[in-house]
């Protein structure tokens, strides 16, 4: 259980792993925006080529990507169906009572489906190849300008990174408390819903108390090490912008130009 890492980071040495988290985050968000330029099959083809290329570059097994789509598949299909039903225009293929599936509806449905899946694939590619802590650093750095608006960016990112740091501990502890209560005769996942809820009390109460204690100890440690909120802190973790990061942004620009050209055609 403790091997489960948040964001499912997969260690590796691919080009994607080596990119600066900021480059990845910016490109990821930018990708979602340029998706809206696409409006015909040529543009979608280009986007697919890009997405598959990125997936290939991550050197992570494709199966992992499909697993990322699975929990969302019903939501996607639901949206696609709505889109198909409520878009009119072109030839009507199916007419069955109030339900009408038109040519445009079908095409739009397919497009929507592609958009969803591509967004999931790209964001999965980012989380698979970036350590959670690097993501936090990236977000911290990108949100930097917000400091001027008195938003406590540093506190937020420190909070995030400490939470990430303690997730394995929390999972370990959950497992331990569960084992201990099972050894005292608790059965999980049995009986009515109310009974099942009841079995959770002996798990969550100790976890809660222990977490509070942990938080207090941690706060003491931080204070003794001289941490005060609002002070100016330097950072040992350094993000380094490399040539390949600049190239990444260029690739994104090229993608945009390609999409616009194909759209104008």
């Amino acid at each position: 259980m403790n091997k489960l890492s948040l964001g499912r980071y997969v260690p590796g040495d691919s080009i994607l792993h080596q990119l600066d988290p900021r480059a990845k985050l910016v490109s990821g968000f930018y990708f979602i925006i340029v998706l809206f330029i696409a409006n015909n099959w040529q543009t979608y083809l280009l986007l697919w080529l890009f997405t598959l290329g990125v997936m290939r570059l991550s050197k992570v097994h494709l199966y992992t990507y499909f697993r990322g789509v699975r929990p969302l598949i019903w939501l996607i299909l639901f949206t696609v169906v709505l889109q198909m039903l409520f878009t009119a225009g072109g030839t009507i293929y199916v007419e069955w009572g109030p339900i009408r599936i038109s040519e445009f509806g079908l095409i739009n449905g397919v497009y929507i489906f592609c958009r969803f899946v591509m967004i999931i694939f790209i964001s999965t590619a980012i989380t698979l190849t970036t350590k959670p802590i690097d993501l936090t650093d990236g977000i911290d750095s990108l949100l930097g300008p917000l400091r001027k608006l008195n938003i406590p960016v540093d506190e937020i990112s420190l909070m995030l990174s400490i939470s990430l740091r303690f997730i394995p501990n929390l999972l370990d502890e959950t497992q331990r408390v569960m084992d201990a209560q099972r050894a005292r005769g608790t059965e999980f996942g049995e009986g009515s819903l109310v009974q099942q809820m009841k079995t959770l009390v002996p798990i969550f109460l100790p976890l809660f108390t222990n977490s509070l204690n942990r938080a207090e100890e941690l706060a003491n440690v931080m204070e003794v090490k001289g941490y005060q909120s609002g002070i100016k802190r330097s950072s040992f973790r350094k993000l380094r912008w490399k040539t390949c990061d600049t190239i990444t942004l260029c690739v994104m620009a090229a993608l945009t130009i390609g999409l616009i050209l194909l759209r104008l055609n």
Partner: peptide, 10 residues
């Protein structure tokens, strides 16, 4: 961590 709190240079 403690050094960061002193705002020490990298």
């Amino acid at each position: 961590f403690g050094l960061e709190n002193l705002n020490m240079d990298y």
